[in-house]
C-alpha cells in the first residue's frame, strides 16, 4: 500500500485573519517605526530635530489609530472590546498587546502635546518608557503569531526580528516620503534615512528567503505552506511584496543616496510601504490556506 490522501473533509473556513489583520501589522510598523527612527534622529541631531519632533507624534498617532480601528473592526463582537481590560487574561499576547498599545498611545499623546506647546522637556521625560512601549507594541503581534500553535511557520523569535525590521523599514520610508514632500530634511539626514531603509530591506529580505529555504524542514505541514507561499495561490502577493518592499527600494534608495537624486527615494519609499503590506498579507494568509485537519 502506497501513500494516502484526504478524500472527504469539511474543514472549517480557511482564512480566519484576512486583510484587516495585515493592515493592523502594516500600520503598526509605520507607527512604531516612526517612533524608533524619529527618536534616533532626535537624539543624534538635537539642534536639527524640529522635523522629527513634529512628525513622530503625528505619524505615530495616525497609524496607531488605523491599527486600533482595524483591530476593532476585525472583532466579531466589536462592542465588547472593553472586556479585554475588564476580564484581562494575561497569558494571552492579545491582552498584553492591548495594554501595551494603550500605554504607547498615551506616550504619543504626550509627544504630540509636547510638540504643540513647544515643551521639549515634556517629551524628553517620556523617551525611555516610550521606547519600551513602542518596542513591545511592535513585537506583541509576534507573540500572537507564536501562540498560534497550529501554524508552524510562525516562530516567535523570527517574527519578532522581522517585525522590528519592518518597523525600521516603514519608519524610514515614511520619513523619507514626508521629507521629500515638504523638503524639510537636510541631505545628511536623507542619506542616513536611506541607509536605514536599505539595511532594513536587505535584512528583512534575507529573513524571508531564509524562511523559504529552512521553514520547510520543520514538518510536512511547513513544507506545504512554503509551497503555497512560493508557488501557490499566495505567490503573487509574496513575490510582489518581495519585489516592491525590498528590491525596488534598495535599488532606488541606493541610487538616491549615492547620486544625490532624492526624487528616487520618494518612489522607493512608496514602493517599500506598498510592498510591506503585500508581504505581510502573504505571510499571514499562507499558513491559513491549509486545513489543519
Amino acid at each position: 500500500m502506497l501513500g494516502a490522501e484526504v478524500t472527504f473533509d469539511v474543514a472549517l473556513p480557511k482564512v480566519v485573519w484576512g486583510w484587516l489583520v495585515s493592515t493592523n501589522m502594516w500600520a503598526k510598523s509605520i507607527s512604531t517605526g516612526a517612533f524608533f527612527v524619529g527618536l534616533y534622529f532626535i537624539k543624534k541631531y538635537p539642534d536639527q530635530d524640529a522635523f522629527f519632533r513634529k512628525w513622530l507624534p503625528i505619524l505615530g498617532l495616525i497609524f496607531i489609530g488605523i491599527t486600533l480601528l482595524v483591530t476593532i473592526l476585525d472583532l466579531h463582537h466589536m462592542f465588547r472590546f472593553w472586556k479585554i481590560f475588564l476580564f484581562a487574561h494575561f497569558t494571552s499576547a492579545v491582552t498584553l498587546g492591548a495594554w501595551v498599545v494603550s500605554a504607547y498611545v498615551l506616550i504619543l499623546l504626550i509627544a504630540f502635546w509636547s510638540w504643540v506647546t513647544g515643551n521639549r522637556k515634556l517629551f524628553d521625560r517620556v523617551v525611555i518608557p516610550g521606547f519600551i512601549f513602542a518596542f513591545f507594541s511592535t513585537i506583541y503581534t509576534a507573540g500572537i503569531l507564536g501562540q498560534s500553535t497550529g501554524r508552524e511557520v510562525w516562530i516567535f523569535s523570527a517574527e519578532m526580528i522581522s517585525m522590528l525590521l519592518s518597523a525600521t523599514l516603514a519608519g524610514s520610508a515614511a520619513y523619507l516620503l514626508i521629507g521629500s514632500i515638504y523638503g524639510s530634511l537636510n541631505e545628511k539626514m536623507k542619506k542616513e534615512l536611506g541607509y536605514i531603509l536599505f539595511g532594513s530591506a536587505g535584512l528583512l529580505a534575507a529573513m524571508f528567503i531564509g524562511e523559504l529555504v529552512f521553514a520547510k524542514m520543520h514538518s510536512e505541514y511547513a513544507e506545504k505552506v512554503v509551497e503555497i507561499l512560493a508557488f501557490g495561490e499566495v505567490a503573487p502577493w509574496f513575490w510582489g511584496g518581495m519585489f516592491l518592499a525590498f528590491i525596488v527600494p534598495m535599488v532606488l534608495v541606493g541610487i538616491a543616496t549615492e547620486k544625490r537624486k532624492y526624487e528616487y527615494a520618494l518612489l522607493g519609499s512608496i514602493s517599500a510601504l506598498v510592498g510591506l503590506w503585500l508581504i505581510k498579507h502573504a505571510w499571514l494568509i499562507a499558513p491559513q490556506s491549509l486545513p489543519l485537519s
Binding site: L75, H76, G150, L292
Partner: peptide
C-alpha cells in the same frame, strides 16, 4: 457572553476544532 470574537482561538487551535 464573554467572547469578543477576535478568532485568536481559531488561529491557536492546531486541530481546526473551533469556529465562529
Amino acid at each position: 457572553t464573554r467572547c469578543i470574537g477576535c478568532a485568536s482561538c481559531m488561529m491557536a487551535c492546531p486541530y481546526n476544532a473551533i469556529y465562529i
